[in-house]
Write a protein that binds this DNA or RNA. Structure first.
Length: 801
RNA sequence: GCCGGAAUGGCGAAAUGGCAGACGCACGGGACUUAAAAUCCCGGGAGGUAACACUCGUGCCGGUUCAAGUCCGGCUUCCGGCACCA
């Protein structure tokens, strides 16, 4: 074994004690800004999945430096969050202590990998000099009316007696204790992300994201076009529904309203069966999320008897039902049911024997309704009979608008972002609640609003934030009127600090502004952002929203924060399952590093398979990468000749081809095949048995982005000048990629018969002539007549008989 | 149900429509060794043959093409995400 532990230590010491990887605010050079998602420093330390993206973009960053770019490649810590706080509570420690310890451990682990991070720009979201600006952004959102407090339904864990974020609810149960989660009304801070819904869709056209990321964001935002339509009731009042199918207006046979809808209370007074309806509403409220959203369960509901809705187009009286399959939070909370053309309405209508009127006929319609397709002709619909679905839709919308009974409208699935947590370990929300003035922002000059140091982080039974107990912190004078007021005691969610951190890397120590204009204009946007698919509809969407807001108020100059996004596949355990402590299949990078070293681990993580797909860890396969590096270490023994600036004839072509392949593969994240081609080259060098100093140099330059320590070591031992990582990335000569003879497959009727050697620039007739001279070919075509001859230069010949 | 992705040796995987299985693991044989480990060399899709030849082979069925893992149409299975969004 080559002495990787000493070698790697030596080079890491040299790199990190010099300014080699520091980004320079040098605007004369072109910049490059690759970004990885900064980690949440959990208590369990790094597992082998964490470094996969770090290594991948390190390869890109190192290559860019060699290509003459000024590179900004950073890491930091997304350190606020629940697991840290829970651990602190359990072990009676301060979350800050826990967090510091975790960061220390993560940092030591990451440093062992030899990633070319600019450690001078390390950031920590829990640092008051950082969260000062997170709070500042919140204040701007508040001032623009995009942060507001409102009564909202939140997730309440019946076990922990605490409010949970949506992302902490797994299939209707608590992520931590697995108890049932119910909905509870609570006063919450919200961010108006819905105001940006359309732009979050539209501006995806301007960025280079994978198709699947764009489509998931679009689906999540969930834009639907349709119409809002007014219905009167027999009691004389008015309500609105949202529908995507105004063309089916004649097929409406009943109305369904969500149990929580305020109109239910209003209509109760008129209902003949008020008691039963009330019971139904109560039962629905008591249901857990699982019960409520289980699609397999039977739909339930109850008619409000004694009151009817009137179809605006034909004055038909139709019954009004209450059912919990209708959501309050989407559209108007009231639905016009068209059982003939909607699966849910159909199911409900069948169960309660409600009428079903077909209004769209189509050859594509199944035997049994409902037909939900849109290729059809309207029937049973007086005014619009015979029209296509699309035309009928336009006709009905026009009619609604002309008669003041409705309008064209768009709805989004996206909801406003519940932005408060009843927790200690987060950014305090910089708002004061004044009995006279309402919610008042604190002055920007008072930022950061520091988290007070407290003893107990345990939440109250009521689920109030632990900060509520700190009277000395809570009680303040109103910044507006000076009367006694109280601070907001909720804190921000973990997603706050990560929504803008990439801006701070550009200018991490600025205490006057979030980022200087100069740094902003030079470094932004992020050129290449790699992260996990799991953040597509969370962090990635949230940070795009914040960035657009900052753009609107003139803080940043680009509409989008990230020019290009890619995502890595997960590294699974040896049993093909997601790595987790409970499954007992976690591989600790420290063990791999101890046994094989950083270069082998880096190489293996990139060689394991397609970067964008999941891959299972295989302890055995690491050996292949280790063997490869052993052989690299032995390369100087094959050196022949003195200084030269040219290739030997034996290796000229393969080295040029390898330069070409490695260069191209890195750009499209095909690290596995880039490494495979380096392995092939090494095999060839050993087969040839010798190489010159120029060739060795090139080999090391290609390798040094993947396995930097060993490359520098061999570089130094061979007496090459300077450091490998500051040399220019090798170019290749197209002509030199050419072999002097190439093997051509000769097929007869598409079946390969033999192979012949030809010069790569052999002309067609010449190639056919030479092929036919071959004895095997001659025999194969004997007795047949050639009807077609195909020649693909450098590849094959096909004779069709 | 909807959206996205995948299916190729014993395993991880490669293949701008052009020789399927590069590269690596594991395995088998050989060399070195007292022996083992390490290292080096050789081998390998399946059937078939004494050996060739030949036949079959990239989830299934069809199509386009001189030529299909790759393109087109229709399925199946698996993985990931979303899900009563009217």
């Amino acid at each position: 074994m080559y002495g990787f532990s000493e070698i790697e230590k030596k080079w890491q010491d040299r790199w990190y004690s010099s300014d080699l990887f520091l980004a320079k605010d040098d605007t004369s050079k072109p910049k490059y800004y690759p970004l990885i998602e900064f980690p949440y420093p959990s208590g369990s330390g790094l597992h082998v999945g964490h470094p996969r993206p770090y290594i991948a973009l390190d390869i890109v960053a190192r290559k860019r430096r060699m290509q003459g770019f000024n590179v900004l490649y950073c890491i930091g810590w997304d350190a606020f969050g629940l697991p840290t706080e829970n651990y602190a509570i359990k072990n009676k420690l301060h979350p800050r202590i826990v967090s510091r310890g975790n960061i220390k451990r993560f940092k030591a682990q990451v440093k062992r990998l030899g990633i070319s991070f600019d450690w001078s720009r390390e950031i920590d979201t829990t640092d008051e000099n950082y969260y000062k600006w997170t709070q500042w952004i919140f204040l701007q959102l508040f001032k623009k009316g995009l942060a507001y407090k409102s009564e909202a339904m939140v997730n309440w864990c019946t076990g922990c007696k605490v409010v949970l974020a949506n992302e902490e609810v797994i299939n209707g149960t608590c992520e931590r204790c697995a108890s049932e989660v119910v909905k509870k009304q609570k006063n919450q801070w919200m961010l108006r992300i819905t105001k940006y819904a359309q732009r979050l869709i539209d501006d995806l056209d301007d960025v280079d994201y994978p198709y699947k990321v764009k489509t998931s964001q679009i689906n999540w935002i969930g834009r639907s076009e349709g119409a809002n339509m007014q219905f009167k009731t027999t009691a004389g009042d008015l309500f609105e529904v949202f529908t995507t199918r105004p063309d089916t207006i004649y097929g409406v046979t009943y109305i369904v309203i969500a149990p929580e809808h305020q109109f239910v209370q209003k209509w109760l007074g008129l209902a003949e069966n008020a008691t039963e309806v009330k019971d139904y509403v109560l039962t629905a409220a008591r249901k857990t999320d699982i019960e409520r959203t289980d699609l397999n369960k039977d739909k339930t509901g109850i008619q409000i008897k004694g009151i009817y809705a009137v179809n605006p187009i034909n004055q038909t009286h139709i019954p009004i039902w209450v059912s919990d399959y209708v959501l309050t939070s989407y559209g108007t909370g009231v639905v016009m049911a068209v059982p003939a053309h909607d699966t849910r309405d159909f199911e409900f209508a069948k169960k309660y024997s409600l009428p079903i009127i077909d209004v769209v006929s189509s050859d594509l319609a199944p035997q049994e309704p409902p037909f939900t397709g849109k290729d059809g002709t309207i029937i049973n619909s007086e005014m619009i009979n015979g029209l296509s679905v699309a035309d009928a839709r336009e006709a009905v919308i026009k009619w609604l608008e002309e008669n003041g009974l409705g309008r064209r409208s768009v709805n989004f699935k996206l909801r406003d972002w519940v932005f408060s947590r009843q927790r200690y370990w987060g950014e305090p929300i910089p708002i004061v609640n004044c009995p006279r003035c309402g919610y008042v922002p604190i002055s920007e000059s008072e930022l950061p609003l520091r988290l007070p140091d407290i003893e107990s982080f345990q939440q109250a039974e009521t689920g109030e934030s632990p900060l509520a107990n700190v009277k000395s912190w809570v009680d303040v004078k109103c910044p507006e009127c000076g009367s006694d007021a109280q601070r907001e005691t909720d804190t921000m969610p973990q997603w706050a600090g990560s929504s803008w951190y990439f801006l701070r890397y550009c200018d991490p120590f600025n205490d006057r502004e979030l980022i200087s204009q100069q740094a902003l204009k030079y470094w932004m946007p992020v050129d290449w952002y790699n992260g996990g698919m799991e953040h597509t509809t969370l962090h990635l969407l949230y940070s795009r929203f914040w960035h657009k807001f900052l753009y609107d108020i003139g803080v940043v100059h680009t509409k989008e924060p990230y020019a290009k996004r890619t995502s890595h596949g997960m590294i699974l355990g040896e049993n093909n399952e997601k790595m987790s402590k409970s499954r007992g299949n976690v591989v600790n990078p420290d063990d791999v590093l101890d046994q094989y070293g950083a270069d082998t681990m880096r190489l293996y993580e990139m060689f394991i398979g397609d970067f964008e797909s999941a891959a299972s860890w295989d302890t055995n396969s690491i050996k292949g990468c280790s063997r490869f590096l052993e052989r690299v270490f032995g390369l100087p023994q094959l050196l022949v000749g003195e200084q030269t600036t040219d290739f030997s004839s034996k290796l000229r072509s393969i080295i040029n081809k390898t330069i070409k392949k490695v260069s191209a593969d890195i750009e499209v994240m095909k690290f596995n095949t880039a490494i495979a081609s380096l392995m092939s080259l090494l095999n060839e060098i050993y087969a040839v048995g010798e190489l010159n100093r120029f060739e060795l140099k090139i080999f090391l330059l290609l390798l040094c982005v993947f396995a930097p320590h060993i490359s520098e070591e061999v570089w130094e031992r061979c007496g090459f000048d300077g450091l490998a990582c500051v040399q220019s990335w090798p170019g290749f000569c197209g002509a030199d990629c050419q072999d002097s003879v190439v093997e051509i497959a000769v097929q007869v009727n598409g079946r390969i018969k033999t192979k012949i050697l030809l010069s790569p620039d052999t002309k067609e007739e010449e190639a056919f002539r030479l092929a036919k001279e071959n004895a095997i070919v001659r025999q194969a075509i004997a007795g047949g007549e050639i009807s077609k001859e195909v020649y693909v230069p450098k590849s094959l010949i096909n004779f069709v008989l």
